[in-house]
Computed example of a mutant assay.
Amino acid sequence: MSAFDDNPFAESAGVNPFNDPAVTQVTNSTVESVDQYNPFPATNLASQTTPASSSPYQPAVLQPSSEPTPQATATAAQANLLRQQEELERKAAELDRREQELQGRSSTGKENNWPPLPKSFPIKPCFYQDFSEEIPTEYQRVCKMMYYLWMFNCVTLFLNMLACLAYFTTSSTYGVDFGLSILWLILFAPCSFLCWYRPVYKAFKTDSSFSFFFFFFVFFCQVVIFIIQAVGIPRWGNSGWIAAFSVIKLSKAVCAIMFIVAILFTICAVMSIILLKMVHGMYRRTGASFHKAQQEFSQGIFTNKTFQSAAAGAASSAAQGAFQANN
């Protein structure tokens, strides 16, 4: 038959394009098709996972800012102020406690014991004194010697008054000496206790530089007074050497009394010089200085309640005056 009898739609081996070897190789390949591909095979992924530490580079981490916020700064400042206020209040309470303890000794059950007066006496003791409790052992001997010197001085002043009274009996012109001797007894006996004995007692007790300097200044004046009293200048109220020799022709008995008083005044002068040197030597070993004395004085002034009240009143008055002036 002719070629026209053939089926035009029949497949021809030479004409079929899908019979190309390249195409048949792909279609017959063992590679899985897309719809059969499993992206999660059953293999152990943990064994194939690369440790994070094996990478030489670390991921960038955003560090928080180290600068405090204004609120945190204000909170810290407020806490600091509260802490300082608590510290000041604690120190003020401690100072009040010490002041009350020194004045009344009521908090510890110890009452003032000097001067030793009877309980029925209307005047009560004004000071507390106990060498074994308040004074260190190395200072007790010198402190007691200062106390004995004060008592010896009081006795000498009393005998000086009696000697001037006897001096006055020899001649009415010596009445000035008797009057001044009474004045010296009334004045020097308590003032010497307050002005140089109590400061040295406090200096040994608290190791206070200011008390040491105050004692040195006052006690040096006391040494000069002892020397003047021992010399016995007439009309000065002292039964010293010159006054004793001046009455030797008038009365031997009065002269003997005045010589005894002159010897006592001389002993006071000599002992005061020795004790002044001893206290000065101890003062140098304590490490006290004039700068420390200034600091103690300024601290004592600023912590004194009377001074604080006066300063607050002055500041308030000045503020009110300035406010009224502006209005």
Rank of each mutant, 00 (worst) to 15 (best):
D5P: 02
D6C: 08
G14D: 07
G14Q: 03
G14H: 06
P17H: 10
Q25F: 13
Q25T: 15
V26I: 12
V26A: 12
N28K: 10
N28P: 03
S33M: 10
Y37I: 14
T50H: 03
S53C: 10
S54M: 06
P56G: 10
Y57W: 14
Y57Q: 09
Q58P: 01
V61K: 04
Q63G: 11
S66Q: 05
T73Y: 03
T75N: 10
Q78H: 09
A79K: 04
A79F: 06
N80R: 04
R83S: 15
Q84T: 14
Q85V: 10
A92M: 07
R98C: 10
E99R: 10
E99T: 09
Q100V: 11
S107D: 11
T108M: 06
K110M: 15
E111F: 14
W114V: 15
W114A: 14
P115A: 14
L117S: 06
P122G: 13
K124Q: 15
P125R: 02
F127Q: 03
Q129R: 09
D130N: 15
S132G: 15
I135K: 01
I135R: 00
T137Y: 05
R141A: 13
W150P: 02
F152V: 01
N153D: 07
N153P: 00
C154M: 09
T156Q: 04
L159A: 07
M161D: 02
M161H: 03
L162T: 08
T169K: 02
T173W: 03
T173D: 09
D177H: 08
D177P: 04
G179H: 04
G179S: 13
L180S: 05
L180V: 15
S181H: 07
L185Y: 10
A189F: 06
A189G: 07
C191N: 06
S192I: 01
W196L: 09
Y197H: 09
P199R: 01
P199S: 12
Y201R: 00
K202V: 02
K205P: 00
D207T: 09
D207V: 04
S208A: 10
S208I: 03
S209F: 00
F210W: 10
F210C: 10
S211E: 07
F212L: 01
F219N: 01
F219H: 08
Q222R: 07
V224E: 02
W236K: 04
W236V: 11
W241C: 13
F245S: 05
S246W: 02
S246Q: 06
V247G: 00
S251K: 04
M258F: 05
A262D: 02
A262P: 02
I263V: 15
L264F: 15
T266F: 05
V270F: 08
L276W: 07
L276M: 12
G281I: 02
G281M: 03
M282Y: 04
R284P: 06
R285S: 12
T286R: 02
A288Y: 01
K292L: 12
A293I: 02
A293D: 00
Q294Y: 12
G300L: 05
I301L: 14
K305I: 14
F307I: 11
F307K: 01
A310H: 03
A311M: 08
A311I: 08
G313F: 05
G313A: 13
A318W: 04
Q320W: 05
N326K: 08
